[in-house]
């Protein structure tokens, strides 16, 4: 589904702030994989996600999505393969637009946009059906502006928008980090629900080791731009927070939210 070969990225090359963010990344995600990616600050996990999404040009290597070489594709061109949820709940939705307008934009991801009138009744019915799965009562608020929703509601809506039109790969960038613990749990459960229902291949960056262990069939740990651990299946199930802490201690990268989270 996703294939990354010999990926390198250096920011601010040739300056005093030079930072080698990704070093020789090789990664293959199989159909239906749910990968949790952990690592300390600056380990490169979000950078790797953004490289897949096309937020910047990579220095070397290649990226394939669903067999297509997307290395030279721009961000909006790759969008047809990708569903994305950001850390900041404000970034995934348009706050001044209505819930149904946001959904209509998402329902046309990867399609050519025309001069056809955007919203039709049958599409509204479809949106209502989709919103009902969130259990947030949003199906009765189609014309509410998204800016009036709470962070958790917005994140749930973003999740729906990212998965409604089935993406080849779902990219989650610490998408519960900005939410309170209770809301974070709701959004994570919803994530698992939607992923299972649509059988999505998922790449989830997280700060939280417990979440990384609890969710997904595969776990990747990064440090200083490299993948230092890649376990899946039974091996992953046996993994504990202590194992991960040991690994972190060896690499010297640790922060409070990983342990407390």
């Amino acid at each position: 589904m996703l294939e990354i070969k010999n990926l390198y990225k250096t920011f601010n090359a040739g300056t005093i702030n030079e930072k080698q963010a990704l070093k020789n990344i090789n990664l293959t995600l199989n159909n239906g994989d749910f990968v949790s990616v952990i690592g300390g600050n600056g380990a490169g996990k979000s950078t790797l996600l953004n490289a897949i999404a096309g937020s910047f040009k990579i220095d070397e290597g290649s990226i394939f999505l669903d067999g297509t070489d997307v290395t030279n594709m721009l961000e909006h061109e790759r969008a047809k393969f990708l569903g994305r949820v950001f850390q900041d709940p404000m970034r995934g939705t348009a706050g001044n637009m209505q819930i149904e307008e946001n959904l209509a934009l998402a329902n046309r991801r990867g399609q050519k946009r025309t001069l056809k009138w955007q919203l039709k009744q049958e599409e509204r019915n479809f949106f209502k059906e989709q919103l009902r799965q969130l259990n947030l009562g949003l199906e009765d608020r189609l014309e509410t502006k998204v800016g009036l929703l709470s962070g958790g509601q917005r994140q749930a809506l973003t999740l729906l928008m990212a998965t409604m039109k089935k993406p080849q790969l779902l990219l989650l960038d610490e998408h519960t980090a900005a939410l309170d613990p209770k809301t974070a749990k709701i959004v994570l459960d919803l994530t698992v629900n939607l992923v299972e229902k649509n059988q999505l291949t998922t790449f989830m960056v997280t700060h939280n080791m417990k979440d990384a262990l609890r969710y997904g069939n595969r776990l990747i740990m990064m440090n200083e731009g490299e993948i230092i651990l890649d376990v899946s299946g039974e091996d992953k199930k046996k993994l504990t927070v202590n194992d991960l802490l040991d690994l972190f201690n060896q690499t010297g990268e640790l922060n409070d939210s990983m342990i407390l989270g």
Binding site: F86, A94, L115, K116, Q118, M161
Partner: peptide, 25 residues
């Protein structure tokens, strides 16, 4: 109210989101 017009509004409202939805901003 058309698809193109809505993508313009989305661009002005949240460029990052527009891009993620495949809109050439």
């Amino acid at each position: 109210g058309t698809e193109i017009g809505s993508s313009i509004r989305a661009t002005g409202n949240n460029e990052q989101m527009a891009s993620a939805q495949g809109i050439n901003t």
